[in-house]
Simulated scan of single mutants.
Amino acid sequence: MKKTFKSDKISCEKCKNLIKVSLEDEFGSIDVDLTKIPREVTLEIDNQSQEDKFKDEMKDLGFDILD
């Protein structure tokens, strides 16, 4: 199912491109909305372990997910 995560660390087009280039091979198409604050990242998440892995990968890139 599609799930949207929020992060206040994403600031620009370079951040958006880093997320897409780094994670789309593993997680499929990722949409990063730079018009909203906090920024929204939307993608298909199939289960809790995939969601946890996505959050860990985002944190490794320097983008904490807000709860």
Rank of each mutant, 00 (worst) to 15 (best):
E51Y: 02
K53M: 13
C15E: 11
C15P: 02
R39L: 01
Q50K: 11
K9L: 12
D25Y: 08
I10E: 06
L18H: 06
K36T: 09
F5K: 08
N47G: 05
S49V: 09
K2E: 15
K59E: 07
S11C: 05
K9C: 08
T35Q: 08
Q50S: 07
T35E: 10
T42S: 14
T35F: 12
V32G: 12
M58Q: 02
K14L: 11
T42E: 05
D67H: 07
K53Q: 15
K55Q: 14
M58V: 03
K6C: 02
C15I: 04
T35H: 09
E51M: 08
L61M: 09
D8F: 04
S7Y: 00
K6G: 00
V41Y: 04
D52P: 01
D64S: 10
L43G: 05
K9S: 11
D67C: 08
M1Q: 10
I65E: 08
E51K: 13
D64V: 09
D56V: 09
D8E: 11
S49L: 09
T42W: 00
S49G: 00
G28W: 00
K14A: 12
L66N: 07
I45M: 11
D67F: 07
V21M: 05
I45G: 06
V41A: 05
N17Y: 06
E26T: 13
L66A: 07
N17A: 14
G28S: 01
E51W: 01
S29V: 10
T4G: 06
E51N: 05
T4S: 15
S22F: 01
K6M: 04
K3P: 01
N47V: 03
M1G: 14
L66M: 13
K20R: 11
K20N: 10
I65D: 06
L66E: 12
D33R: 07
D67S: 11
S11E: 11
K59P: 00
P38I: 03
I45V: 15
E24N: 12
C12M: 03
N17D: 13
L18W: 01
K55L: 03
T42I: 03
N47L: 03
D25R: 11
K9I: 04
K36Q: 03
K2M: 13
K53G: 04
K6P: 00
D56A: 13
V21F: 02
D60N: 15
K16E: 14
D25M: 07
K55I: 15
D8Q: 08
T42P: 00
S49Q: 12
S22C: 02
N47R: 00
Q50R: 08
E26S: 09
S11K: 12
F5Q: 08
V21Y: 03
L23S: 12
I45P: 04
L34T: 11
N17Q: 14
M1D: 12
M58S: 01
E44G: 00
D52S: 10
P38C: 02
D31Q: 14
K20C: 04
C15K: 06
I45C: 06
F27G: 02
E24M: 15
C15W: 04
D52A: 08
L66H: 02
C12W: 02
T42D: 01
D46P: 03
L43E: 05
P38A: 03
T35P: 02
K36S: 10
D8R: 08
F54I: 14
D25F: 06
T42F: 01
I37S: 13
D25K: 15
D60A: 15
C15S: 09
D31G: 09
R39G: 02
L23V: 14
F63L: 04
F27H: 01
N17T: 15
V41K: 06
